[in-house]
């Protein structure tokens, strides 16, 4: 397995050198195919895209949904760009509802307010980080995520859950495993796709595509990671909705 990973990394390195073109997708974004597909489908997304040719996405996220708080360099903005690129005939909009320092439970109790007057086709709920940092009882976390997903579905949206970031230096400080488990289980029970940000970033770190140990204070690395996450998320959504971009184009 590691040999394969090494080979992939080498191939990537080679493609970096050989590609050279400025506007090609940044190298090192590659994600193993099994992390980009889900057996659970996004039926509402599929329907709205094919009938209404639009896709309204709401991202409910914590601080790690952003690089710096203001601009579009976080993964939601990058996903929007990637989706527009891949689905040129569809009207895509992505809105970020930033819930800084809120646990899943906090978000759920505020959900009515967050959703007020909005009718997103898809809600991407990135959660777990704050709960893990505060060591919220995994049972409570599970109840909260469970209720949240149910409420979002009831509101008429498809849901994608997105788990924690992987950070090699964080492992000493934050216990992530129970929260990752809970999110996997809840996603399975609601038959909703889980975007495994943790595994993807772990993969990038293992294969050396990103040096997540990096100590520098610059935002370059963070921007590149979010760009890749945004692209991966866009592919994930398209795959989970079983959309065939080529077919959409021919329909036009």
């Amino acid at each position: 397995m590691r040999a394969t990973a090494g080979l992939i990394a080498l191939t990537l390195l080679w493609s970096t050198v050989s590609a050279g073109a400025e506007d090609a997708p940044p190298p090192g974004c590659e994600v193993p195919a099994n992390l980009l597909t889900s057996e659970n489908t996004l039926k509402k997304v599929a329907e709205t895209v094919s009938t209404e040719r639009r896709l309204d996405i709401m991202v409910i996220g914590s601080r790690s949904a952003t690089v710096t708080t203001a601009d579009g360099s976080g993964f939601p903005g990058r996903m929007e760009a990637a989706l527009r690129d891949k689905l040129p005939t569809i009207k895509v909009s992505v809105n970020l509802e930033l819930q800084i320092k809120k646990t899943a439970g906090d978000v759920v109790s505020d959900l009515d307010h967050i959703l007020e007057g909005k009718q997103p086709t898809l809600v991407i709920w990135q959660t777990g980080t704050v709960d893990a940092m505060r060591a919220v009882d995994p049972d409570d976390f599970r109840t909260a995520v469970d209720e949240g997903v149910a409420a979002l579905q009831k509101h008429g949206a498809d849901v994608v859950l997105m788990n924690l970031q992987y950070g090699p230096r964080m492992e000493t400080m934050i216990t992530t495993a129970p929260y990752l488990d809970v999110m996997r289980v809840v996603a399975q029970q609601h038959e909703t796709p889980l975007f495994d940000r943790f595994a993807i970033m772990h993969h990038w770190n293992e294969t050396g595509q990103f040096d997540l140990f990096n100590n520098s204070r610059g935002v370059e690395l963070a921007k590149r990671v979010h760009d890749c996450l945004g692209r991966a998320l866009a592919s994930f959504v398209i795959d989970a909705a079983r959309i065939k971009p080529a077919e959409l184009r021919t329909q036009k």
Binding site: S62, S64, V67, T68, M173
Partner: peptide
């Protein structure tokens, strides 16, 4: 102080 982990450093 990697800005990628600003949130997690809150711990």
């Amino acid at each position: 102080e990697n800005p990628l982990y600003t949130e997690e450093m809150g711990i």
